[in-house]
Nucleic acid binder design. Structure first.
Length: 811
RNA sequence: GCGUGAAUGGCGGAAUGGUAGACGCAGUGGACUCAAAAUCCACCGGUUAGUAGCCGUGCGGGUUCAAGUCCCGCUUCGCGCACCA
């Protein structure tokens, strides 16, 4: 045979006809839920990133099947979202239509890749039978006070004409179109993810996740422990609450700063400062997000005329506003301690405000000094350490009702409203009599209408659809209007892994028992760009559903890994503008899917990725033809035959068993590259035996060859199926079991150990396995080159690591 | 700035603290061929006449009989967060 794409096609048809990869929930074996982050059908074909993510995991899935697991390995499509809508706007194709055709092509290509998915367990988030339950989820959160509406400044992308989540703003620009993002106030729906901040932190510990991902999440949640302190405003009955992690520096406060957007500003601004304050607020509000985030920008601000009273020193300090204080964090007010905070120091220096040192740390008197130390100039708190002072001062404040311990998080509630067409409608109704009313469950799904003008003009597209917007109030049955915003696509993807195992359920989002049995996902794979958003949202929703009694587990993904990324051959990220993209299709056509996927697995370290190289794929093609010719020769060996198992045969068996075991270990570490290299070593050994053994044990050789096909099967599903058939089998290789390892055959009887003198390699020594230590020592000391280096020196000690190394230490 | 990951031949990349460079690419020499391609065999970190030796895993220290691997201090690059009080 000559392997090529037509062989792929032949087997594909057969597998499809026989429904070879059908998942049987009652199947034998321990369950194994393997999941890759589902793909977004934004382009019409699979790109190299899809292949790189999915093909190796298909290999892993096949391997686990052969090992006897009942593998659940579903695939679906994250179909709602901006790119499809943008595509539609640009090309005049309705997102529903472009999505449907893209999904069709991608499914076919995933099959052509060799994917062992059971499409009976597939889902697409834009279909009614899926988003019905996304809406159900929204209502559940709403019922439990975890979804609420509020007016808030939001990130507004002028080009996409939509609100963006904080996570979708990259360096002040839209992460999709890269336009500069500005601020706008609208009424929006939020999910109260902040209620779960503490759980999201605590439960990270037990997860088998990359530590960098855990740290990203911790950083994103951003817990900080400190105190809240009340500053009374002079001559007014108003308290300014500030959050600080350094209450030990309280005596060093020389002014207080509010964010320009803070509600207190209007109340505290004195008349003769009003003009300047207004001008400042106006100026900062026109600053784009990107400008405001420039950390090295010079500090600006104005005094607003009022004074605050330091609760411990009773000193009056001026109140300023400045945009270096963020409205969205803490209370939006800050106590400024210029001596011990770099930002306050900069500000105070610029505006000539006093700087008072209250912490001493050794001889370091250079200000600003941000380290902790011992208190000075702090009344009765002098000589306390920062650590103790934080507690003492807060307790004292607490007694006077002027402060308390406080924990703050950077995590903000999840903004889920989108002023877009291509998403799930939010199942909420506005009634003049009843107010905000959740749509009733029996009316779900609230259907997304097809005929809608979705071109952006700053209004939600659904607002323009009369048939959509007008409805009956679920409560009073009077006329009412629907919510016109749609849900963030991250809501769709925050629970899809729960739907897969029970994807046809039309009574509920999922059956509790089925899901509790199948989840958590045993291995979840996807790009690390999702370390913060998708992976936090999915954890949050899982925890909510657990608390509401729908699930028995609180973490969705026990083990997580991130695949690396394939770069262009120039080492840069692939992009059309750089002209360095690699289109898989041309390679599949030329070589067949198996050669392509094997190259992807062999040429890179899976978790790292790296730059694409054309040469590698022809090398893989050469390996395939080496295998082909070996199997062709196998049937007409014309040499003296034997049935004995002598040293040469034993060596072959040893290599084989080592290979099988080695591949098992490699695959469990997702080391596809070394796993394939082990198949190569095995093939080299088979060829060596086939070419040179005299006499030759053909029966044994054929058995080993058959084992070879089995271990190749997960990597090259089409090619191995063809080899299997050519070797006279009429069932599928993919129904075979993974070969059993005979551990007794793994160790050679003879091993070669390293002989070192003072840690330097001086010789190698062949010994019988598990030779007595004394004998090994004797043999080692007798080696010519060892004698040379030990001669005339005192032997201090000899370290022997059995069957590995002997180190002779001399003086 | 804070956090985090990485650095190994000409290249992709291997190495539970135990013979650095598995496997492959590229390269060199040879066989086959009229010739080329393909295939096969050998070599393939540097230095050296060498099979003996010396040097060698970004840099400087340390722990250890033994360090690419562990510890301390740097450099460079990548990634994430970024005025979070």
């Amino acid at each position: 045979m000559k392997y090529n794409q037509s062989i792929d096609q032949k087997w594909l048809k057969k597998w499809r006809d026989e429904n070879l990869y059908a998942y049987n929930p009652k199947g034998k074996g321990e369950k194994f839920y393997l999941l890759e982050m589902f793909s977004y059908p934004s382009g019409s074909t699979l790109h190299i990133g899809h292949w790189y993510n999915y093909a190796p995991l298909d290999t892993y899935s096949r391997f686990k099947r052969m090992k006897g697991y009942n593998v659940f390995h579903p695939m679906g499509f994250d179909a709602f979202g901006l790119p499809a809508e943008n595509f539609a706007i640009q090309h005049g194709i309705h997102p529903h239509d472009s999505t449907a055709s893209n999904i069709k092509t991608m499914k076919l290509q995933l099959e052509e890749m060799g994917g062992d998915y059971d499409w009976n367990y597939s889902l697409e988030t834009h279909t009614e039978d899926y988003y019905k339950w996304t809406q159900w989820l929204f209502l559940k959160l709403y019922e439990n006070n975890l979804a609420y509406k509020k007016e808030a400044p939001v990130n507004w992308c002028p080009s996409c004409n939509t609100v963006l989540a904080n996570e979708q703003v990259k360096n002040g620009t839209c992460d999709r179109c890269e336009s500069v993002v500005s601020k706008k106030k609208i009424s929006q729906w939020f999910f109260k993810i902040t209620d779960y901040a503490e759980d999201l932190i605590n439960d990270l510990e037990d997860l088998d996740w990359p530590s960098s991902t855990k740290k990203t999440q911790l950083n994103w949640i951003g817990k900080s422990i400190g105190s809240e302190v009340s500053f009374k405003v002079k001559d007014q009955d108003i308290d300014i609450k500030v959050f600080t992690t350094r209450v030990d520096t309280l005596a060093g406060v020389t002014y207080v700063v509010l964010s320009p957007e803070n509600d207190l500003v209007s109340k505290l601004t004195k008349e003769n400062y009003q003009k300047e304050v207004d001008a400042y607020i106006k100026k900062t509000s026109t600053f784009s997000e990107i400008e405001r985030m420039e950390t090295d920008r010079e500090k600006t601000g104005v005094f607003i005329g009022s004074y605050a009273i330091n609760p411990i020193t009773k000193e009056e300090v001026p109140i300023w506003i400045s945009d270096y204080v963020l409205e969205g964090y803490g209370t939006g007010c800050v106590m400024a301690v210029p001596a011990h905070d770099t930002r306050d120091f900069e500000f105070a220096t610029k505006f000539g405000l006093p700087i008072r040192q209250v912490i001493k740390n050794g001889d370091n008197d250079v200000l600003p000094m941000t380290e902790q130390g011992t208190l000075i100039n702090s009344l009765g708190y002098n000589n306390l350490t920062s650590e103790v002072a934080k507690i003492t001062i807060t307790k004292d404040l607490e007694k006077d009702n002027k402060g308390q311990f406080m924990t703050n998080y950077r995590l903000k509630d999840w903004l889920v409203s989108r002023q877009r067409y291509w998403g799930s409608p939010i199942p909420i109704v506005y009634c003049d009599t009843c107010g905000i009313v959740p749509e009733s469950y029996e009316n779900l799904p609230v259907k997304l209408p097809y005929d809608v003008e979705f071109k952006p003009d700053g209004k939600s597209p659904l607002a323009k659809s009369e048939e959509f917007i007008n409805c009956a109030c679920p409560k009073c049955k009077g006329p009412a209007k629907r919510e016109v915003d749609t849900l963030d696509t991250f809501v769709c993807s925050s629970w899809y892994f729960l739907r897969y195992p029970d994807v046809h359920n039309d009574k509920e989002a999922f059956n509790k028992d089925i899901v509790n049995k199948m989840l958590p996902v045993d291995l979840y794979i996807g790009g690390n760009e999702h370390a913060a958003m998708h992976l936090i949202y999915a954890r949050f929703i899982t925890k909510v559903l657990k608390d509401l009694g729908y699930l028995s587990f609180s973490e969705p993904f026990s083990k997580l890994r991130h695949q690396g990324m394939i770069l262009g051959s120039d080492g840069n990220k692939m992009s059309k503008s750089k002209g360095n993209t690699v289109i898989p299709d041309q390679f599949i056509k030329e070589y067949g899917a198996d050669i392509f996927r094997c190259y992807l697995m062999f040429g890179f370290s899976y978790l790292e990725g790296g730059p694409w190289k054309d040469e590698g794929i022809s090398a893989m093609a050469r390996y395939f033809s080496r295998i082909e010719s070996f199997f062709e020769r196998l049937n007409d060996i014309d040499r003296e035959e034997t049935t004995k198992v002598n040293d040469t045969e034993k060596k072959l068996l040893t290599v084989m068993n080592k290979t099988v075991l080695g591949i098992e270990e490699d695959l469990d570490k997702l080391q596809f590259n070394t796993a394939i290299s082990k198949t190569m070593e095995f093939m080299n050994e088979l060829v060596r035996y086939e070419q040179f053994a005299e006499p030759i044990n053909i029966k044994l050789l054929k058995e080993c060859a058959s084992t070879f096909i089995k271990i190749l099967a997960p990597f090259a599903p089409f090619f191995s199926e063809e080899l299997w058939k050519d070797s006279g089998n009429d069932t599928s290789i993919h129904l075979e079991k993974w070969p059993k390892v005979d551990k007794s055959l793994i160790e050679d009887e003879q091993v070669e150990i390293a002989v070192q003198v003072n840690g330097k390699l001086r010789a190698t020594l062949p010994i019988n396995k598990d030779e007595k230590e004394a004998t090994v020592k004797e043999l080692a000391l007798d080696i010519e080159n060892v004698k040379l280096h030990t001669q005339g020196k005192e032997i201090v000690k000899i370290i022997y690591v059995a069957n590995k190394i002997i180190n002779i230490v001399v003086k």
